[in-house]
Design a protein around this nucleic acid. Structure first.
Lengths: 424, 424
DNA sequence: CTGTTAGCGCATTCAT
DNA sequence: ATGAATGCGCTAACAG
């Protein structure tokens, strides 16, 4: 039913090998025959059989990008950036952020200047290589960048890695924090090693390097700890002392690092004792606050989503109505925190300051605008994409720490003088 | 280097054919030999060679999900839902959003109770979840659900479809509005037909059915027009008459439908003349407002992102300082609109009401909470996933319209009496 | 530059 | 219930 290489060869009156050569572009072919072949390809609407091609060449053009939550822009931004570097042939960094818009012509009304696809890969500039990517979307040496949603589940993460391994993926990018369970870490590590052995390039983005990570091409880690520390230092500088922390899932590295940064700052300010750095954690909404040091009592764990932030903050306010500031695990959680705080009749930042993490696009639009820590998600994702494609040389040691920048905005302010009208 | 089927066969002292049979599970194999094979597989850390398997079977377990903007939760939610239905064997609808836990889990070691399973191409009996998916993340008959980010570019959409076609994808789900350019529509339509002919199941989610869409398994379309109409009717009922509209890219179906709904309502209220339904559009920031009917003057096109909403709204307020309400293309744009309105010193909703579309998670947290139109994104995505897997029978005619529900919240209120303190 | 010849690793007929 | 062939469609050496 579907046309094969042989069909094209017959129609172009050449051998299958020749057709293969012009299709792959990495081999000298007479311009005349090349044209004939190309024409035959078009006439037959021929599309390469990927599996067959991969089998014969022992390589695939699949590149997998694993994310914890595809509905979270935190991952979407990184994944999109990585994809833009992988998908298009050379893809200058130009394509850029707004991504969405990039292609789709600006609102250009009716007729208006049409525009072809933005500036696509340097247009016909096709230097030596393949060159195709013709009108009909023939897709030349394109890689197929795909994102896989693990939902934060280590099992699914492993499953996806296996699936990708099975496809003999050219590269794999793992984004976001890892789960700290030793068993899973070992399993993931082993799997990545196997992938690397099989020739798959492995890149970590926004995830701490794994122990014995020789298997990995590069690990781009965010400075979550430093960011968390600076954020809390900012609050301390404003005069806050009773600072609540709405943390993410206890088992994730991201959660731990951000929390550690917070506590480092608190400890340095003498607000929590030395030697009590252990986090006993708490599932979230249950009111088990007996005993424990302040640092535990003022920390509530939840998920990285809005509702969780909302509930955890209510719990926090229940435990300690006198908090003057709430630091959230990330911006989304901060949004939920804001809702909870307002629901209790408190104002932001007059009664309670709120801070987030990540600086997602919507954070600047929150009212008041959210003080947060900016992570260069797009840049990191793009770099990971380039690393995965071998278009950029890995950082020394294969590890790079990406800075986190404090963004002070309206949601944080000095605490109010203690008056009686608090807590209703 | 990597183990092959033959290696496993040798180690288990059976033929390659037998190994293949137990791995695919759809053929009777003695329990004893099955166990031996499975053990050999584990010992050798064998992973099926996807390309070879796909080549021989002429099918692949790849399922592609195309989205316009992966950083936009609108798509992330749908894609995640679809993926959750596709990835996991049976995947009860329960799994739901936060997912985290869901996992394939059930470490069921080696043997495990077999069960009859999901039944790929309606083949054999298997009902439950295919036994495997063992500890080592062996990944049984799992499909590989992947999302591809087109960035809204028709060219990239085509490229991805070709890439997926080349991989002989089992199914493809296209989400979000389409570009209305006839050439592209035809190209996409032709491509989808070819995909369908090759056995790929095509499902549309949140996208209008294509003309002559016999190739498509099912099309789930959102009632953008109805939603847009009801939203504007709500504003009209509140007493607004000067309503501005910040539209999305002019060439997208979603944009057009929502705008049409808006104008239908305006027209029904006698606020714009009949026969002037043509949209002349406008690139956005340039102040070309000469002539034109009100409906054009009060409509500004932009992209589906925050900044665009911000800029378009500034333009709108410039053209007509007396607007008492602004309807945005979607929630994200609405956020930008809010920022612009506030920057002009106007209050929401006292001075200007604002409404969005989609009801994304953050919309309820906006201040004031955003009046919008709720689209059941998760449900639609999940349904699309099931349709793509053949787990659900298509709606009659292959087309289903999904309702849009008006959500009235704090960002809309009756317009103020006309006083002099407006417009600075 | 182009044609020939071999497999790539697995799923299937067929035979047992 | 199992094993022995055959070929899926393509790439990669080798010739020429």
């Amino acid at each position: 039913m579907t046309a094969t290489l042989a069909d094209v060869a017959a129609r172009a009156r050449v051998s299958a090998a020749t057709v293969s050569r012009v299709l792959n572009g990495n081999y000298p072919v007479a311009e005349a025959t090349r044209a004939r072949v190309l024409r035959a390809v078009d006439e037959l609407d021929y599309v390469l059989n990927g599996p067959a091609s991969s089998l014969a060449a022992a390589t695939s053009d699949l590149v997998g990008i694993l994310v914890n939550d595809i509905a979270d822009p935190f991952f979407g931004i990184m994944a999109g950036a990585a994809q833009s570097e992988i998908g298009e042939s050379g893809a200058g960094s130009g394509s850029g952020q707004a991504g969405s818009g990039a292609g789709s012509g600006a609102g250009s009304g009716a007729g208006s200047g049409q525009m072809t696809g933005s500036g696509r890969a340097g247009a016909s500039g096709r230097t030596g290589a393949s060159g195709r990517t013709g009108t009909s979307g023939r897709a030349g040496g394109e890689k197929l960048a795909v994102v896989c949603n693990t939902g934060g589940s280590p099992e699914r993460e492993l499953t996806y890695l296996t699936l990708l391994q099975r496809q003999r993926a050219a590269a794999v990018i793992l984004t976001g924090g890892a789960v700290e369970d030793p068993a899973h870490q070992a399993a993931i590590s082993a799997k990545l090693t196997k992938l690397a052995d099989a020739g798959t390039r492995v890149v970590l983005c926004g995830r701490p390097p794994l122990t014995g990570g020789e298997a990995v091409v590069a690990a781009l880690a965010f400075d979550n700890r430093g960011g968390g520390r600076r954020l809390t230092e900012h609050l301390l500088a404003l005069g806050h002392t009773r600072i609540g922390y709405v943390a993410g899932p206890a088992e994730r590295t991201t959660t731990r690092h951000r929390l550690e940064g917070h506590r480092d700052a608190m400890r340095a300010a003498g607000l929590i004792g030395y030697g009590t750095g252990r986090d006993t954690g708490d599932a979230g909404s249950k009111g088990s606050a007996e005993g424990a040091y302040d640092e535990d009592r003022l920390t509530v764990h939840g998920l990285y989503d809005r509702r969780s932030g909302y509930e955890a903050t209510l719990e926090l306010l229940r435990r300690e109505p006198e908090v003057t500031a709430v630091v959230a695990a990330n911006d989304t959680v901060a949004l939920g925190a804001c809702a909870a705080i307002r629901e209790r009749g408190l104002r932001i930042p007059e009664d309670v300051s709120v801070a987030g993490f990540d600086d997602l696009p919507f954070s600047v639009d929150a009212v008041p605008a959210l003080t947060t820590v900016r992570l260069p998600l797009f840049e990191a994702g793009a770099r990971a994409g380039r690393l995965a494609m071998g278009k950029e040389t890995p950082p020394p040691g294969g590890i790079a720490t990406i800075g986190a920048e404090l963004m002070v905005r309206g949601s944080t302010a000095p605490p109010r003088m203690r008056t009686a009208n608090r807590g209703r």
